[in-house]
Every structure is written in C-alpha cells, then in structure tokens.
C-alpha cells in the first residue's frame, strides 16, 4: 500500500531531514512512526500526502508514484488519504458540522450525501450533540475528534496522523487511539506518528523508529 525506496529529503545545506529511508506498509496495517523531535516523522507523512517534495528516491502510495504528481493531479493522492494534525487545523469560523462537511464539499458530493455522511462521521466520534458548536467552544480532545471525523468522512483507505494526541492528556489520548483502531478494523491503513511512549506501550502494532532522518528499526 505504501512504499518508500531510498528517500532523501534536504531542507537546507545541513544534514538531510530524511536520509535513504526505505520502508513498506501493507494494506490494512496499523503502524506507529516514532522517534525524537526532528527524527523525520512529520516529513515522511508530508511526503506521503504530497505536501512536501523529496529530493531522491521513490514513493508509492496505493500504486501512485508520488514523485510524478504535479499541482494539477496531486488531489488524486490526497483524496485517498485522510490527514490528522496535532494542531487539528479546524476552520474557526465554521461549526463542527461545517468543518466535517467541508471535506466532502471539496470532493464534490451532493448535498444530501454530505449531510448523511457528516452526521455518520460525527456519530462515530461521539460528537453529534456538539455539531453546532464552533471549534473555540470545544476542548482539545473534542477538537481532535472533529479532525478525525473530517479525515474519516470520505472513508479514505489510508489515514495519516501527525502526533494526534500530542496536546491531549493520557485518558483522552487513549480514547483517540481507540477511534484510530476502530478505523483500522474497518479496513483503513493507519500511519500514526507519535513520540508518546504511553501510546506505544501496549505493543499491539508495528513500530517504525526513526532517528535523525534514518530508519533505526521497523
């Protein structure tokens, strides 16, 4: 499903952010990407959804050669990946419902379908009572659940999460992780970047460890 071959990414003249990274994630897998800050976790995720370009190597996501995509067709890759960020990236002037529906509007669903699927996604993350609230009126955990609902509403086959529990306490983090596991059970491939040992401790899923832009263990 996801394959990286000898990927190199440089941001400047210093040490590469990714240095000869190769890895493979199978369809339906739940994988943690971990490592200290600056290890290259976010860079890998950004490359996987085409937000960053890489300098060398090859990246295949669902058979799409990411390096060959340009501004005109990158949306084909992004429509098959749901992305969740540590800072949620919710639109402050839109309600919870509108934030989730927004993800479908850009991919051109009809209005009835948008309503139905948004409602369903909010139900899955337990946020239907808050559908008319604005992000500023929600707790961190709730905001992250909105972001998860937004990522899952189009039922993408791949979910990329960049430190989705980074700002949340242990209890809420566990709830969020549960949501990811549910999505995984429903067939989604999950790549979950985290440096939290609490999240990794149960050892249920494969862990890819990065350090200074290199894969230490996978």
């Amino acid at each position: 499903m996801i394959q990286l071959f000898n990927v190199v990414k440089n941001y400047g003249s210093g040490k590469p952010a990714l240095n000869d990274v190769s890895l493979k994630i199978d369809k339906g897998e739940f994988v943690f990407l971990t490592g200290p800050s600056g290890a290259g976790k976010t860079t890998i995720l950004k490359i996987l959804f085409g937000w960053e370009r890489f300098d060398e190597g090859q990246v295949l996501v669902q058979g799409i050669n990411v390096g060959k995509l340009d501004a005109g067709n990158i949306h084909t890759l992004r429509r098959s990946t749901g992305v969740i960020f540590q800072d949620y990236k919710l639109l402050p002037n839109k309600t919870v419902f509108e934030n989730v529906a927004f993800a479908q509007e850009v991919t051109n669903h009809d209005r009835k379908k948008i309503k139905f699927k948004t409602w369903e996604a909010l139900k899955n993350v337990g946020l239907t009572p808050k559908k008319d609230s604005f992000p500023a009126q929600l707790s961190g955990g709730e905001q992250q659940r909105v972001a998860i609902a937004r990522a899952m509403v189009n039922t993408p086959p791949i979910i990329l999460a960049d430190e989705p529990t980074g700002n949340l306490d242990q209890e809420i983090s566990a709830e969020i992780l549960k949501l990811f596991e549910e999505m995984n059970q429903n067939g989604a491939t999950i790549v979950f970047a985290t440096h939290s040992q609490d999240i990794l401790r149960p050892g249920k899923h494969r862990v890819i460890v990065l350090n200074r832009g290199e894969v230490v263990s996978s």
Partner: peptide
Amino acid sequence: QDEIELMLLIGATPRF
C-alpha cells in the same frame, strides 16, 4: 489562506 491550504490538503482541485 488557512482555508485554502486545508482545501488543498483534503483533496480540492486547483480549479475548486
């Protein structure tokens, strides 16, 4: 700008 970036992140076409 944030909204546009988000649109592109979640798969909007440049035309959209």
